[in-house]
Amino acid sequence: MSDADLAAPAKPAAIDARGSRILQGTGWARQLALPIALVLLLAGFGLADDRVLTTYNLLNIAQQTSYLALFAMAQMVVILTRGFDLSLGPTVSMVSVAAALAMAGIGGADANGIVAVLAAIAAGFALAAACGLFNGVVVSILGVSPLVATLGSMNIAIGVATTISDGRPVQGVPAAFADLFYRGSILGLPIAIVIAILVGGVLAFVLSRTVFGRSLYIIGTNPQAAAVAGIPVKRLLVYAYVLCSALAALGALMMTARTGSGEPNLGGTLSLQSIAAAVVGGTSLAGGRGGVGSAALGALFITILSNGMNLTRIDGYVQMIVLGAIVILGVVLDRLRLDGR
């Protein structure tokens, strides 16, 4: 679960030595800080309100976490390479609207909605891939900073989402779509949790056991060294941004199934929330450090915090202040961890 574990398991001896040094330097107390904080937070809210620790609410937290975890993982992939994706939220809106429009367009033409669902998936992923491709090409080939590139594509995606939907929710999502991405369950677990766990598992494997994943860590740690070592930095950066957008698209389809309509405002604050979740979990904005575990933990932390504050009826405006404070605290802790090495 820890970042050090994910940064360590490369085969070459040199990197292995570096990994073990990280493990010694960081120590267990720092690694366990966030999980312990999670348990304390949950216990504290449980004492404050007895609805917090019910099976129903815990399942609810898990389900909400799975959406944010997907977005945090998406963000984490590009943060590993010293980038970030401000267009993630608008991409979610755009995919949601496009998928709903595709389904509404096909409408009642097919009886059980399979064609409509496939069309929605195709439309959503195609748009997201185009957005990711744009980000990746602008960042890696044109050499524009990720902030400006994704700020640009953020504006473009907002424009596309509101234009094709006329700024209104898009109705006409068939039941088959909601069954596939929201209502279904496997072994009693809601489908959203299953999808998040599956995607997280595959992504963890890709990041820690494939050449592509290891290369992302090296690019983030030292881009010059990565280029000298013969890693096709530009191509892999494009892949990273496309992967980020694709994961965001998956989350967008799941959220569209949950709301039952294509929402042009669905993404809202997700860009910032996903960055916050990744950073609080321990992904370093300096690149090269982080993993699926850290993204998921960060997402869980933020979800529990907002769920608990909602149930204990803490003012929404105060929640904004608390979220801001948590983000700052997260990076300060990250800085202390780095200094601890």
């Binding site: 910032l272 950073v279 801001g324 404070a325 983000v327 990076v331």
Partner: peptide, 9 residues
């Protein structure tokens, strides 16, 4: 990140 936090707060 700091100003992201202060923005929200």
């Amino acid at each position: 990140v700091v100003t992201l936090g202060t923005m929200s707060a």
